[in-house]
Design a protein around this nucleic acid. Structure first.
Length: 468
RNA sequence: GUCCCGUUCAUCUAGAGGCCUAGGAUCCCAGCCUUUCACGCUGGUUACAGGGGUUCGACUCCCCUACGGGACGCCA
């Protein structure tokens, strides 16, 4: 069978992580089975849909690398088609006009709630033959008896009695079709074989299946993925922090890290934690997706991002890092090669923002010494040690790692002290206390001029502090 | 309220009746490594929601309860 899946967001906001994971699962299923992946924009709600949202969703999909084979299709471009389907249902008596007022519907709902019943339309207009000339909506004539049973790809068997369902509106009084109709028409027309979507749609599925059957169409398979909760156990929303996929890019996350985090949320393959996209495609299976909701955990995302920053191609990381360096007001061209800096610093940062921050000292003098580091390093004879090592460094013929290393060693020998007595103050003098790699590499990258200048600054700092 | 769905460490999860004195990962703690910070390595704390069955045996199957979530729109 030719597999075809889709992602069908409504453009009423950005692409959030929940939607992104649903899209990922859907995309993975298509890729895994050599099928096709369709992007469809469900914009039948004219009030809330915006072009900016469409752009934001497209941007998020692109950043994550979830490329689609068909689309984006827009439901607003297909209204004529939906109309013909609705007219057909009407002609065959499978739908009917209803002119119940909103007031009547409201009181009906209230009465049913008061009577501890599930609120639903009572079928008042079913046999009334409302005139097409007066204001009306079109309702689908849902079967009254029996039940709808389907085998969910993730949840297993789900059964709902038709007596629980009511006659849903498929065309509004303004003539616009509604979601439950358009989704069925589109999934059918586009040849979707597996409808993979959030589990907030589980309750819609039985009524949609009734629609498929009324239309004489083959019913696709359904897979409802559980939702993502915030750290407090409530549905993930803005108040939990970043929910937009693009916010993660801004905050210095790598797309493959987010993807890896998302794929492991509700799905696993034994004890494996790190998956390349190719591995996900090879191993992902809908039947292994969990049935319960999972909580979004930024700490684990951070760990994964750290892993990816460490193992990714340094040139690529440097490329992704440069805008963040720029945000600090630094031009990476005016200092050591950014790729080399990335290689030196990457195991010390969990995000690109952090990487930029701890790498700033290579490019410009830091403002202040880290208080704790300075207190620890600048004690005893630190000023003397710095003066001594500066003299040696200033005489160096070539500013390379080996000579720098030898130079520090020579100073240690000359002073007859432990290596740390010289190395510690020197490191803090040059870095200000930021995490840094080998001392000789650090000095080499910072450069001779800046290093010597900063040593002077440190000596000044120490003497002024001890005097006061 | 009614219907649908769910419930293993703080979090993500493994577990398809005996392999479970419940495994891995994140977080946290301790130690090692070390010229800073990290990386890395070693070790540690922490979980089968509760109650009934079924069975020689249940985290695994069934029922009930509790708790959590979703749906109940002329939103999607």
């Amino acid at each position: 069978m030719n597999v075809k899946t889709r992602f069908a967001p409504s453009p009423t906001g950005y692409l959030h992580v929940g939607g992104a994971r649903t899209a990922l699962f859907s995309w993975l299923h298509a890729r895994r089975h050599g099928g096709r992946f369709v992007l469809r924009i469900e914009d039948t709600d004219l009030e809330r849909s915006t072009q900016e949202s469409v752009n934001a969703i497209l941007e998020g999909m692109t950043w994550l690398g979830l490329e689609y084979d068909e689309g984006p299709f827009y439901q607003t471009h297909r209204f004529e088609h939906y109309d013909s389907v609705i007219d057909d249902l009407l002609a065959r008596g499978l739908a009917y006009r209803c002119n119940c007022s909103r007031e009547r519907l409201d009181t009906l709902r209230e009465e049913q709630m008061a009577a501890k019943q599930k609120p639903r339309y009572d079928g008042h207009c079913r046999a009334l033959d409302v005139s097409p000339d007066e204001p009306h909506v079109i309702r689908f004539r849902n079967p009254l008896e029996g039940s709808v049973v389907f085998e969910d790809l993730i949840r297993g068997r789900i059964a709902v009695a038709n007596s629980e369902l009511d006659d849903l509106i498929i065309r509004r009084s303004d003539g616009a079709p509604t979601y439950n109709l358009t989704v069925v028409v589109d999934d059918h027309d586009m040849g979707i074989t597996q409808v993979i979507r959030g589990d907030d749609h589980i309750n819609n599925t039985p009524r949609q299946i009734n629609l498929y059957q009324a239309l004489g169409w083959e019913v696709p398979h359904f897979g409802h993925v559980p939702m993502i909760l915030g750290e407090d156990g409530a549905r993930l929303s803005k108040r939990h922090g970043a929910v937009s996929v693009m916010q993660y890019r801004e905050q210095g996350y790598l797309p493959e890290a987010l993807l890896n985090y998302l794929v492991r949320l509700g799905w696993s393959h034994g004890d494996q934690e790190v998956f390349s996209v190719d591995q996900m495609i090879e191993l992902f299976d809908l039947s292994e997706v969990n049935r319960s909701p999972s909580t979004f955990n930024t700490e684990k995302l951070n760990w994964l991002n750290h892993q990816y920053i460490k193992q990714a191609d340094p040139a690529r990381v440097a490329h992704l890092l440069s805008p963040h360096i720029g945000d600090l007001g630094i031009d990476p061209a005016e200092g050591p090669d950014l790729v080399t800096v990335v290689e030196a610093q990457r195991e010390r940062a969990t995000t690109l923002i952090e990487l930029a921050r701890i790498s700033a000292f290579y490019y410009r003098d830091f403002e202040d010494f880290d208080v704790k580091a300075a207190k620890k390093a600048f004690k005893g004879d630190a000023a003397e040690a710095l003066a001594a090592v500066k003299t040696h460094l200033a005489e160096l013929e070539s500013w390379e790692r080996e000579p720098i290393h030898a130079c520090v060693g020579a100073t240690v020998d000359a002073l007859g002290v432990g290596f740390g007595k010289v190395a510690m103050p020197l490191r803090i003098a040059v870095t200000g206390g930021a995490p840094s790699p080998d001392l000789d590499l650090t000095l080499y990258l910072v450069g001779r001029e800046s290093s010597l200048r900063r040593i002077d600054r440190a000596i000044e700092h120490i003497t002024s502090n001890t005097q006061s």
